[in-house]
């Protein structure tokens, strides 16, 4: 029973992490064209896109950690 609950929690955590990737990508479309539209400097869209990509790469590292033969 405990293992089942753990399994469910793990699946839920995995699903949340996985879904956060398309959410971040959607933000990469929307934020630069709205909130950062007038920020014409390196700390505007450029920094946002790079940080968002860093987050996506980190999520890939976490979500593929259990890939085993």
């Amino acid at each position: 029973m405990i293992r089942t609950d753990e399994g469910r929690r793990s699946s839920r955590r995995r699903a949340v992490l996985l879904i956060s990737i398309p959410v971040i990508m959607l933000a990469m479309f929307v934020v630069p064209y709205t909130l950062l539209r007038e920020v014409d400097a390196w700390y505007g869209s450029a920094l946002f896109w790079m940080l968002a990509t860093g987050a996506v790469i980190a999520l890939n590292v976490i979500l593929s950690a259990d890939w085993e033969d």
């Binding site: 996985l18 990508m25 990469m28 630069p32 450029a46 790079m50 968002a52 979500l63 593929s64």
Partner: peptide, 23 residues
């Protein structure tokens, strides 16, 4: 300008599809 960076980084993030389809 900088839009090129966003375009290419979005492509890179799209490779996340390998996370789902790779295995």
């Amino acid at each position: 300008g900088v839009g090129a960076l966003g375009f290419e980084l979005l492509y890179l993030c799209g490779v996340t599809l390998v996370l789902v389809f790779g295995p």
